[in-house]
């Protein structure tokens, strides 16, 4: 009820704040900028791809907006608020290789970590959290693996554990860094299913993606990135041969006009 009334008002309001609004973002690890003057606006309730060659700064973009690495300049707003105020509404699925899978813990425990933000300092997860975590594992089809040591999961299963952890966060905006990297067709379908379910619930999902063949099938919104933003907008407008050429250089001409 409340939600629908807000939606009705939305048209009357000047403009509802976008889930992610980036202005003039520049990031440099050393002297050379890795991201240069990035402007970006991610629309609500859509599946959004960030695409670009290796080293384009895609992971850096996500880490910088989430405050995990320092910005040289620029502002970032989530739902019209600064990061601190919006933390609870943001979920993050890092690249799988970013953690040590030999850590002594099991799948359920990793998913529970997604709920730590809600718990805050000192409070420990209890029965309610464990149930929420099990529910998240169920959504990605890993119920049977809840108590499996994480090193003994396959790569695709580890990826799904990360996804379940993000689901458990119950966020409004999700960032996923290459969730489809190195997974088989079945896992890819399972992950896509979850993303579409999130979209149905009105959530916004931002995905770093590498496979140009599937961009058209999977996403509504596309941002082409190579240090700078080459193009960003609805898929029909941005997924063009010219833009891809500008992003990847001359040698690229993949699957656009099929």
């Amino acid at each position: 009820m409340i939600k629908s009334s807000i939606n009705e008002q939305a048209s009357a309001l000047p403009r509802r704040a976008a889930p992610l609004e980036v202005r003039d973002l520049t990031v440099a690890y050393h002297e050379k900028p890795v991201l240069w003057d990035v402007d970006l606006s991610i629309p609500e309730g859509q599946l959004c791809a960030i695409v670009g060659p290796n080293g384009a700064g895609k992971s850096t973009l996500i880490k910088a907006v989430l405050g995990l690495i320092p910005k040289a300049s620029g502002t970032v707003q989530f739902f019209g608020q600064p990061l601190e105020a919006a933390r609870r509404r943001i979920g993050y699925v890092p690249q799988r290789s970013s953690v040590d899978w030999d850590f002594p813990t099991n799948a359920l425990d990793v998913v529970l970590m997604g709920l730590y933000g809600r718990l805050g300092w000192f409070r420990r997860p209890g029965k309610a959290e464990r149930e929420a975590a099990m529910h998240a594992l169920e959504q990605v089809g890993l119920t049977a693996f809840a108590h499996r040591q994480i090193a003994q999961l396959s790569g695709g299963q580890q990826q799904r554990v990360f996804l379940a952890r993000a689901l458990a966060q119950a966020s409004d905006l999700y960032f996923m860094d290459e969730p489809f990297a190195g997974v088989d067709a079945v896992t890819e379908a399972a992950i896509l299913q979850v993303m579409r379910e999130l979209k149905k619930q009105g959530k916004t999902v931002v995905v770093v993606h590498h496979d140009l063949e599937t961009v058209r099938d999977y996403f509504d919104h596309l941002t082409l990135l190579n240090v700078q933003v080459i193009a960003s907008g609805p898929l029909e407008q941005t997924f063009t041969p010219e833009n891809l050429k500008a992003t990847y250089g001359e040698r690229m001409s993949v699957g656009v006009g099929r």
């Binding site: 880490k63 405050g67 970013s98 953690v99 730590y116 300092w121």
Partner: peptide, 22 residues
């Protein structure tokens, strides 16, 4: 004992720990 949960999270995944404000 006090920071068990926070230590575990920031040891396993410092990125998430930071993202969650820990």
């Amino acid at each position: 004992l006090l920071f068990y949960k926070e230590l575990k999270l920031s040891t396993f995944d410092a990125g998430l720990a930071a993202a969650l404000g820990f």
